[in-house]
């Protein structure tokens, strides 16, 4: 079989914060799609697991000039910096090769069966996108979630205690889309054929998902918007999740506002 050159994808996400209403559907859709576990006390944020986490920020101005903005935060799927320098922070510290950056999709994987639960990656992640399973999630020992294991999806492995989990850009949906394409005798996916559960669920359509390497994809066009930024850009983690906000204070809080960093992120910079 021929080797496909130059067809490597780089999946990424653009979240329009002007459209985001902070409703939290992305979080619920993510949890339902990915068999994320629930605990009786979800308000204990050090123990609660949310691959997609909604943050609330405000402009800090007193009443009545207060403004609120919401930040949906999936895994940023950090990349290499392209200069042979550093790697995704979590991948470079994993001692068990349980997480790796797939050069063919740009997705940072997390293999539960491989993870030894040292939580080094959790400490390394600047976005707090990684979560540790302190207990078994769904199991026969959990009477409080009785019956709820019936809605578990077979496409995602339920996690056992002692492993790290995080957003996978709904990798199983990529597999689902590919399998469908193969059945239709196609090898390449159309735009939007593979989108994450949060993208699909967002009622305000604030999330766009696609291949950053494909100039025709909407994501590639959106990241050229002058209001596009990434979180903690100065760390040079090269996230594949972009945000758009027309509000300066929001962009400022994302740490993209150091004097020499006021510039739109262009496709070349990725």
């Amino acid at each position: 079989m021929e080797k496909r050159e130059g067809h490597d994808n780089k999946y990424g996400m653009v979240i329009d914060l002007d459209k985001c209403t902070g409703c939290g559907t992305c979080m619920v859709a993510c949890a339902a799609e990915n068999n994320v576990t629930v605990r009786a006390d979800e308000s204990d944020k050090e123990r609660s697991i949310a691959w997609m986490q909604l943050y609330k920020i405000d402009n800090g101005r007193p009443f009545p000039d207060t403004e609120v903005c919401y930040f949906p935060r999936p895994c940023m799927h950090c990349d290499e910096d392209g200069r042979g320098g550093h790697h995704s922070p979590c991948v470079s510290v994993c001692v068990a090769t349980a997480t790796e950056l797939d050069p063919h999709t740009g997705i940072v994987s997390q293999i539960y069966a491989r993870c030894i639960g040292c939580r080094y990656c959790q400490a390394a992640c600047p976005y707090h996108a990684r979560y540790f399973n302190w207990w078994d999630g769904y199991s026969s020992f959990k009477p409080f979630s009785k019956g709820m294991e019936r809605s578990l999806s077979p496409e995602v492995s339920p996690r056992m205690r002692g492993v790290i989990e995080k957003c996978t850009f709904c990798h199983h949906r990529l597999m689902r889309a590919k399998t469908k394409a193969y059945a239709e005798n196609r090898r390449d996916l159309r735009e939007y054929e593979y989108i994450t559960a949060c993208t699909e669920a967002c009622p305000a359509r604030a999330i766009t998902f696609g291949d950053l390497n494909n100039p025709d994809h909407m994501v590639s066009r959106l990241i050229k918007n002058k209001n596009t930024f990434r979180l903690l850009e100065k760390l040079n983690t090269q996230p594949k999740v972009y945000y758009i906000s027309s509000k300066e204070w929001v962009r400022k809080l994302a740490d993209n506002y150091l004097p020499d960093q006021i510039k739109p992120v262009s496709g070349n910079d990725i």
Binding site: M1, T97, D102, S109, R114, S157, H171
Partner: peptide
């Protein structure tokens, strides 16, 4: 053996 070493990325076969 079949020249598809790229498919040995963890996420190809793990979920």
């Amino acid at each position: 053996e079949k020249g598809h070493e790229e498919n040995n990325a963890c996420f190809t076969c793990h979920k």
